[in-house]
Structure formats: structure tokens, C-alpha cells
Simulated scan of single mutants.
Amino acid sequence: MVPTNPASGKGTYEIRIGLWATRKQAFEVQERLTRALCPEPEHSGPCKIPWSSAVLEPEAVDEDGVGYDELVRQAKIEGTW
């Protein structure tokens, strides 16, 4: 865990979004989120609030879907499992 800077009160936060999707769909969602965070990608200099994004393969996220039980359960209900 990255510590919070006591002078500014700022620190690093991680937001995870679990998706039941194909690889292509996952990258499409990443692109849309990227545009929401930085709607003007050609701006000069870094973004006001530094950020990054990544798409992780299912194996890298959590073995056997632990932590995403609800997502897996919904995929089974919808027949997309």
C-alpha cells in the first residue's frame, strides 16, 4: 500500500471493476473509461490527476473467481458462463 502524503492528504487509490466480458469487450470498456478520465488525450503535459489503467486476464485477477462470486453467479444465471 502506498502511503498518504501527510502534507497534501493525497494518496494512491485503486478502483477495480469486475467485468464478465470477452477480451475485446474488456478493452472497449477500458477505452471508454480512459476517455471519461481524460477526454482530451492530446493535451499538453500530464493530466491534473495522475492515473493509469490496465486490463488483467482472468487468471491474473483471482484464481477460481474468488472475490467475484456474485459476478460469476450472475453469468451462470444469464447463461453466459
Rank of each mutant, 00 (worst) to 15 (best):
E57R: 07
T22Y: 02
A36E: 06
R35N: 07
Q74G: 00
R23S: 08
E57C: 03
G67T: 00
E70T: 04
L37E: 06
P3K: 14
R32I: 05
Q25G: 03
P6V: 15
Q30I: 01
G11L: 08
S44F: 07
Q74R: 12
Y68V: 00
V72M: 10
E28R: 11
P58K: 12
P6H: 13
Y13M: 10
M1Y: 11
T22D: 03
P3W: 09
T22A: 08
T34Q: 08
D62S: 12
W20G: 02
T80V: 10
W51M: 09
T4D: 14
A60N: 10
L19A: 12
W20A: 15
T12P: 04
E59M: 03
E59F: 07
I49E: 12
M1T: 13
T80H: 04
G18Q: 03
N5A: 14
G18S: 06
D64T: 05
D64C: 03
P41W: 07
M1E: 13
G45L: 06
P50C: 11
A54R: 12
D69F: 02
A7G: 03
S8V: 05
G18E: 02
L37T: 11
A60F: 01
W51A: 13
L71P: 01
T80M: 09
P3E: 13
E57L: 13
E28N: 14
E59L: 06
E28T: 11
S52P: 02
A36G: 05
I49K: 05
W81V: 01
L33H: 06
M1I: 08
G18V: 02
V2Q: 13
P46C: 07
R35P: 01
T22G: 06
W20N: 13
I77D: 04
V2G: 05
Q74S: 02
W20L: 05
Q30C: 12
Y68K: 06
L19W: 09
E59S: 04
N5T: 15
R16F: 01
M1N: 10
E63H: 01
V55F: 03
G9S: 14
I15L: 15
C47W: 04
I49C: 04
S8H: 13
K48Y: 03
G9N: 11
I17N: 06
G9D: 14
A54K: 07
P50A: 11
V55Y: 03
P46M: 14
E59Q: 07
A7R: 14
L33G: 09
R32L: 09
L71H: 02
L33T: 05
R32T: 08
D64P: 00
P3T: 06
L33W: 04
F27A: 01
E40H: 12
R73S: 06
T80F: 02
E78C: 07
G45S: 04
V72P: 00
S53E: 04
P46Y: 06
L56M: 12
P3M: 07
N5D: 15
V29F: 04
E40C: 11
H43Q: 15
L56N: 03
E31S: 15
R35T: 09
N5C: 12
I17A: 04
D64A: 09
D62A: 11
E28G: 08
W81K: 06
G65R: 00
E57G: 02
